[in-house]
Write a protein that binds this DNA or RNA. Structure first.
Lengths: 195, 195
DNA sequence: AGTATAGAGAACAAAGTGAGATCATGCAAA
DNA sequence: TTTGCATGATCTCACTTTGTTCTCTATACT
């Protein structure tokens, strides 16, 4: 719940964005609501962000994003077996566009059960980001001998080999010399839906 | 997220392309936005490319391609253990906004392992659609005795009872008289991502 | 007294902006 | 083919703007 001043700031931001197509600076907000201190504005903006009405990217200018309900799902709470839904106090929302879309991102449909213990099932869509390097322990799309592409967890060994570890007890980790493996992307997340 | 200057450059490029059918040079952009340094323009253009709004072909003149921003992820193909990525011939895309957003949709964070065999893990986000009825066999958010909300598969029995079936061998299905169960929504899909 | 709200303003680090030099290279004219 | 210019690419320097974090003060209310 916003205080009176916070509401004034929020209203001003909305008006400003509508007029200018971009967010105001702290100083502009301060002037707009009739105070002089950028620090105070910052405090208000942080509070509004806490309420889930805006999103801020720390450190950047004009860093306030109004969370348009059109791209956001309300995050209602936590659900667990045998307990009521824990209400989430902040009005959290999920901006799914922001989460999954980005430069060099792409989707792959999963076939097979090799990552089933990570909850990656046959038919799921994994979202990946194209890149050629990955940190140890990440799930990657790896190309072996320029032929076989698989989704596995990667482990770098000290003897210049790479082990690709499936998440399925029935399958064995495989180790290759590092020059036989090319990383095609790293796993970002997962989508699953009917149809 | 573009800065104000970057936005000016992007707007100028769009206007220029519309007028001339080809991209402007760095110098033309510089003149267009009122600065003199080509180097600065290059920095802006690189930033816009980083955002994925344009594409640049390094080294060539008038090398900027406008990309249409969208809510779609390219669906590159199928990935399976031990086989190459099956390329999908059509440039299929996934409109993730369309898939998950909709009237009366909301998200819940999953706590616990009661649906683990369906690949719904602790920490996952399930997307649900609010409704009061669900077809037999669907996964639903069910409220028991107006107290406990759980995510379970639903089964209607002929004796006016309802069985809620977890997807975890360790947990037992539970059967209730139908008046003790209220459906709060049906499961639409699942999101999982880092952070 | 204790708490919540509101504001001022200083100080700092980082982001953003711009100029201009320099090099490499494509492209078209000679 | 060669040459020369326009252009892209990269870099450094300087400067301004802005976000962020402080501390200090004041007021209202319980």
């Amino acid at each position: 719940m916003l205080t009176v001043s916070q509401q004034k700031v929020y209203d001003f931001i909305q008006k400003f964005v509508k007029e200018h197509q971009h967010a105001p600076t702290m100083a502009e907000i301060a002037k707009g609501i009739g105070i002089t201190s950028r620090g105070v504005v910052h405090r208000y903006v942080a509070a509004i962000a806490q309420e889930g009405l805006i999103n801020i990217i720390p450190g950047h200018r004009r860093n306030i994003q109004l969370l348009s309900p059109s791209n956001c799902l309300p995050l209602k709470g936590r659900i667990a077996a045998g307990s009521p839904i824990e209400a989430i106090t902040d009005n959290e929302t999920l901006d799914i566009v922001n989460i999954f879309l980005g430069k060099n991102r792409y989707a792959l449909k999963v076939k097979g059960d090799s990552m089933i213990e990570e909850g990656i099932f046959d038919g799921d869509i994994v979202v990946c980001e194209h890149c050629e390097d990955a940190a140890d322990g990440k799930i990657v799309v790896a190309l072996v001998d320029n032929q076989e592409a698989t989704l596995k967890r990667i482990k770098y060994n000290s003897d210049h080999t790479i082990t690709l570890i499936p998440a399925n007890q029935k399958l064995k980790p495989m180790t290759y010399p590092e020059d036989r493996i090319a990383i095609q992307g790293i796993y970002i997340g997962l989508l699953r839906f009917e149809g």
